[in-house]
Nucleic acid binder design. Structure first.
Length: 269
DNA sequence: TGCCAGGTGATCG
DNA sequence: CGATCACATGGC
């Protein structure tokens, strides 16, 4: 395990980052410490309010800097958001340490296919089962990497059913096969052509896997939020999308994460 | 027991 | 088009 330290970090809080719904494989390990995996590496990370320490089985400084998005100025993002929309301030203050991770696109495709009509604790379990069965063991750790497209493209439908993936099993296999055949998708239309990916999941993949920060996923929580904040009809997802594009522009994805974390985190306490 | 969870595909008017 | 329904599973 090598140790990488990023000093004097601002606008960073591991709980906010790992509990805001963008990732599913990091677990709290005691006093603010999290263990998880990214790419083919496992890691334990901690933050003391100033220094971010990453103890990892691999990956260089540049890899982790990019993964945690440490070159983006979140102070500026929060400022611009609250200037254009004062109503969002409680959310940016509550989740002030959120950063949008740069995660692997294939992992995002499969993870958010699993997320549909599902709850977050069960999404985590489903993903860990998948990693345990189809992902490569990570040397020097008890964890497994996220499965490769090859591994999932060759998965057996009955095995996935036995892992309690429900009706999403066929979606997973089809998505892995398409990814293998066509390569990494580059745009929203391409994602929408996947069997099992609709507007919401496509937006999550654009935002978390392809870093399209204008993407604004509208799920059941965001519908409730948009209803509360602006009086939108709960069924008017399209109107919400258009409104977010107009109101938040290229920062819509960040806005969505601050709002999602603010509403969901308080409602479960 | 029925409803809900980071929805989508198929079908019908 | 837009509305409606089925789809696996588990928690409450």
């Amino acid at each position: 395990m090598q140790k990488i330290i990023f000093r004097d970090m601002r606008d960073l809080d591991l709980t906010h980052i790992f509990e805001c719904g963008q990732c599913f494989r990091w677990v709290p390990d005691g006093e603010g410490t999290y263990t998880g995996a990214a790419g083919s590496f496992a890691a334990r990370v901690r933050f003391d309010g100033s220094d971010l320490t990453v103890e990892t089985t691999g990956g260089d400084e540049a890899f982790w800097r990019h993964y945690f998005d440490l070159d983006t100025d979140y102070g500026s993002i929060k400022r611009r958001l609250t200037e254009s929309e004062p109503l969002i301030r409680p959310a940016t203050e509550y989740g002030h340490g959120i950063r949008i991770l740069n995660q692997d696109p294939f992992e995002m495709i499969i993870s958010f296919i699993i997320s549909q009509n599902n709850n977050i604790p069960r999404i985590r379990k489903n993903i860990e089962s998948l990693c345990g069965k189809y992902g490569e063991p990570i040397e020097g750790s008890d964890r497994h990497a996220f499965p490769s497209p090859e591994a999932l493209a060759g998965a057996d439908e009955e095995d996935l059913a036995a892992m309690r993936l429900g009706y999403r099993g066929p979606y997973i296999i089809a998505a892995a096969q398409k990814y293998l055949e066509c390569g990494c998708p580059g745009c929203r239309e391409e994602l929408l052509s996947y069997y099992g990916i609709g507007p919401k999941v496509a937006n999550c993949i654009m935002l978390f896997g392809l870093r399209d920060t204008a993407a604004f996923p509208v799920d059941t929580w965001v519908k409730q939020i948009m209803n509360d904040m602006y009086g939108f009809d709960m069924k008017d997802a399209k109107g919400m999308q258009a409104f977010a594009a107009e109101k938040y522009g290229d920062l819509a994805g960040y806005a969505q994460q601050y709002l999602f974390y603010y509403y969901r985190d308080r409602s479960r306490k």
